[in-house]
């Protein structure tokens, strides 16, 4: 069995083949999306959801804390971005910071309530808090615009020092989102391979043991929750720009469940890249099966059920099996020889 906590063969350097492929796909997407019959906006949507899913998997896969209410933080980020543009000032960085800050704050409060739980009770508490935020978003009409949400959120200019760029069309905004995503991916990669990341994985594997070798498990779980909510908030800020609006729908239990499905189907429990596969699969299903039949969600749901039954490691686990079934290449030994520090 493969696991998220296997030691990376190159000691945690992010420059792996998978990373290369990922960057290549992101950087070339604007050039082939339209020729193959898709559209520019889809690339951006996928990039944003990848950011959300990877940040979510820090909590779900790495720390083993199964949140079923994570859509709330995406939504809070989106609202914060929109409210900042509409009520404070028109500024890209300010808006994104507001999105991260709001989601982080919400995560910190909820995290304080849920961090001494795990398993089903943790899932349940996150559902309850998610529903509270969702409800509030619908009912606080004067702030959030109720069921319709905040409309007409602008896409402010990108200002870096003296440089000022208009990123209001889908293609340039895609580039911006991609750069943010890449920075976030590198940060997450760093995080999960650093001592902090390994400790939080230790907590997933055995919370009791982690406590009895001296880790403040509550604090680490809380921090992970907060960081993961912060990433969701960043994704939410970008989402508000992409959609030019913010609305309660993304905070519903349905959406929170969908992100869990994406991460699991992709293989977030066994691979850093799992959530990426899951997001891709979901949007391909939505746009391609969805183009053929109205009932695409039925087929996606069936696929998900079968996946949980026969291959809970998801697509990433499936790829791993396929790769090990192929004629063996030079096997990567895990051991002192492969250990960079001892070379």
């Amino acid at each position: 069995m493969i696991s998220l906590s296997d030691i990376p063969a190159r000691g945690g350097s992010p420059f792996t083949r998978s990373m290369g492929l990922f960057v290549l796909l992101l950087l070339t997407a604007p050039f082939w999306l339209e020729p193959i019959g898709l559209y520019q906006y889809l690339g951006m949507e996928i990039a944003i959801w990848i950011l959300f899913a990877l940040g979510f998997n820090l909590l779900f896969g790495y720390a083993g804390l199964h949140s079923f209410g994570h859509g709330a933080y995406l939504g809070i980020g989106a609202y914060a971005f929109g409210l900042f543009q509409q009520n404070v000032t028109l500024n890209l960085w300010g808006g994104l910071l507001a999105a991260i800050a709001a989601a982080t704050l919400a995560g910190a409060i909820v995290g304080a309530f849920v961090s001494h739980r795990r398993g089903i009770y943790f899932a349940l508490m996150t559902i309850a808090f998610g529903q509270v935020f969702w409800f509030a978003a619908i009912k606080l009409h004067s702030v959030t615009g109720g069921e319709d949400g905040l409309l007409g959120i602008p896409r402010p200019n990108l200002v870096v020092g003296p440089l000022k760029l208009d990123i209001s069309d889908n293609r340039t905004l895609y580039w911006f989102v991609t750069i943010v995503l890449l920075v976030a991916v590198l940060a997450l990669w760093r995080l999960v391979n650093a001592p902090f990341g390994r400790v939080l994985q230790a907590i997933r594997q055995n919370e009791t043991r982690a406590r009895f070798v001296g880790y403040n498990v509550w604090l680490i779980k809380w921090l992970t929750f907060v960081v993961s909510a912060g990433f969701a908030g960043l994704a939410g800020g970008l989402f508000a720009m992409a959609q030019e609006s913010a609305y309660p729908d993304v905070m519903s239990l349905h959406q929170s469940g969908l992100i869990v499905m994406m991460v699991l189907v992709g293989g977030g429990l066994v691979s850093f890249w799992g959530p990426v596969f899951g997001v891709l699969l979901y949007f391909i299903a939505r746009d391609i099966i969805g183009g053929l039949t109205e009932t695409w969600l039925l087929w996606f749901g069936l696929m998900f059920v079968i996946m949980v039954m026969v291959r809970p490691e998801g697509l990433a686990g499936l790829f791993h099996v396929l790769r090990t079934c192929l004629p063996p290449g030079p096997r990567k030994a895990v051991g002192p020889a492969a250990h960079p520090g001892r070379a």
Partner: peptide, 13 residues
């Protein structure tokens, strides 16, 4: 978790 996920999928279906 797996029972939860499977039944979530079933609910969707």
């Amino acid at each position: 978790l797996y029972g939860l996920l499977l039944t979530f999928g079933a609910a969707l279906v």
